[in-house]
Design a protein around this nucleic acid. Structure first.
Lengths: 339, 339
DNA sequence: TCAGGTGGGGAAAACGTTATCAGCTGCCGT
DNA sequence: ACGGCAGCTGATAACGTTTTCCCCACCTGA
């Protein structure tokens, strides 16, 4: 009886010896090759059972070249959109017999980007999915080496780089949300944007396009971080601005912070001001008033990204990108303006 | 010039040839061994740069036996607690130079448990962290093979199995929340529990202990799924029960659903009924009324779990478990009963 | 001058698996 | 009777690293 310390996991050779066959035969049984006599297969299967043998993934993937790990690079993991996308990737990967690894890119700085990539590529990965939801993801996608299977997932309406992309058409969604508010009779729509640099946010582009198409004035963009407290601070200022009757927020957290601030200042939503969010987190339907927002199917986004990566890994040429359009969900936080 | 199709990732031998040194020397440089002349090291570093060489993780971990992948098994990923715990694990792992893989156990059924374990162990993993937040996780922890480094993370106040555990003392927290409501003057406290089987939930145990210690009647437990709609349905029933003045909910989602239902029925929180949640999701502080709840530091839980796993992987004997106590956060949803 | 370190570097083995190849049975068709 | 061809099996060679072993050159002290 071996002491626990001297325990060594059984390997193929141990199984072969126990079953009194050769090593390659065990391998054949494991990989379901035909050309192996039923009786031997039986012995091998039993030996595997009794020894509790598990194939060594490292050796396996080294020799065969087949990789069963798909890596996700993301600027965060716990935020709603990130977590749901990751869930979509994991589910799709699991159905395909693959496992998902996740590495966070702490910021868009070169140092963090490089560290994350080094860590990821130290694993025997089949390919990488980059979540291009923020600067960290965008930079990471750029910094990945050539020749490696890569796809990006993000919110653009068209692919930006030269790698396949799974996308959500935020531009169209932002436009629809803004048009809806205008349709209700608002003279214009204000907008709290996320920290995305420049004019690269599809949500903001859509908002601007809708205002331009309607020929109404385009208010100054208000910039905020993604979290609720930023929305709250803007709410405090907006409460003092008499010309604001409708606000389109870059995400739900900002919208909820805004609504709370307005409520704290004695303003009514939607009576005094209409508010629209973006994401459709589950809880926003419970809010009082429940939030009109844009439903993004992040899980589907993750699944599509995995599908594209699988194609690239299989060596297909010219893999097409994939775009979905999110839907406006009308609830209680929007109404025609007063008077 | 090789065609893109014939591209083969550079390996150690290529670097060695380019730098005009032997293969082991390159390896020594990579692993920072002393005993290598500065000049050679220089040549090797340059060759690595120009060739864009990346070590093959599979070969590396096969030969050295060192594993840099830590696997997480969980019943879900996107829910608040799961996502935050995962984040904690990832951050700690990344700081230690390791990568995290995640596999979802779809249910507690043998079939799903086995599939998830097979998938996980097909990777060259250093060890496994199991999130024991639900039946799927509990069963997965039981089904993992002996000899594999395993730790669990969960909400018990004491470890259940024979593997090290990172825990959050939900029992004490549940007791404190209930005591707080009693202290406010409520005659008793009702409880909406989660779907956890039997009496194994620490939150429920703590609630029962507090009531018993105070010598007040213990109401019938109300069972619910973890989501808000279950809380909403109980809210509809509670609105018709005149003896309910305080409700302790097993998580924040249930509490928010409950509050919305009460509000829809014209009842005031906390005027008519006090509500306490569990988890302290960021948004509940914004609610109107903001939710009194129990702050669970899931990120810390994940970090502690990783720390324990690192000890086990290093071969330390008798690794102690780790327990933290969550804090009650008093906000607007609780008040003394009427009259 | 020579024995005995010591810093430095290469040859070769090893890790656990899969792929390749060759060999051994029978059995078929001519 | 014999070539050929399935069906089956085991030696053996890879895969890309790290580790072990050994050798060489140099330096030191006697």
């Amino acid at each position: 009886m071996a002491s626990p310390k001297s325990y060594r996991a059984p390997v193929l050779a141990d199984v072969a010896k126990a079953a009194e066959v050769s090593v390659p035969t065990v391998s054949r049984v494991l990989n379901g090759s035909k050309y192996v006599a039923p009786e031997l297969a039986q012995r091998v299967t039993e030996a595997i059972q009794t020894l509790g043998y598990r194939p060594n993934g490292a050796a396996r993937s080294m020799r065969s070249g087949r990789r069963t790990l798909v890596s996700v690079l993301a600027g965060a993991t716990a935020n709603y959109g990130y977590a749901r996308t990751l869930q979509g990737v994991e589910t799709a990967a699991r159905r395909a017999g693959m496992t998902v690894s996740i590495t966070v890119v702490e910021s868009g700085d070169d140092e963090h980007v490089r560290a994350a990539i080094d860590l990821t590529l130290a694993q025997p990965t089949a390919g990488v999915i980059v979540l291009e939801f923020d600067r960290a993801g965008i930079n990471a996608a750029r910094a990945l080496p050539e020749g490696l299977p890569v796809v990006v997932a993000g919110g653009g309406s068209r692919r930006t780089g030269h790698v396949p992309a799974a996308l959500i058409d935020e531009r169209t969604a932002g436009r629809q949300a803004t048009e809806y508010l205008l349709h209700l009779g608002h003279k214009t729509v204000h907008h709290i944007a996320g920290p995305t640099e420049g004019k690269h946010s599809g949500r903001t582009e859509g908002w601007r396009a809708a205002l331009a198409a309607a020929g109404v004035p385009v208010p100054q963009i208000m910039r905020a971080e993604w979290d609720a407290s930023a929305g709250y601070r803007w709410g405090e200022r907006i409460a003092g601005m008499s010309d604001v009757t409708a606000v389109f927020c870059a995400n739900d957290d900002i919208a909820l912070g805004l609504m709370r601030a307005l409520s704290d200042r004695g303003l009514d939503v939607p009576g005094d001001i209409s508010v629209v969010g973006f994401d459709d987190q589950p809880l926003v339907a419970l809010w009082r008033p429940s939030l009109t927002t844009v439903d993004q199917d992040f899980e589907d986004l993750g699944a599509r990204a995995f599908g594209l990566l699988a194609q690239v890994v299989d060596g297909e040429e010219g893999v097409a990108s994939s775009v979905s359009t999110p839907q406006l969900v009308v609830r209680e936080s929007t109404a025609p303006p007063k008077g």
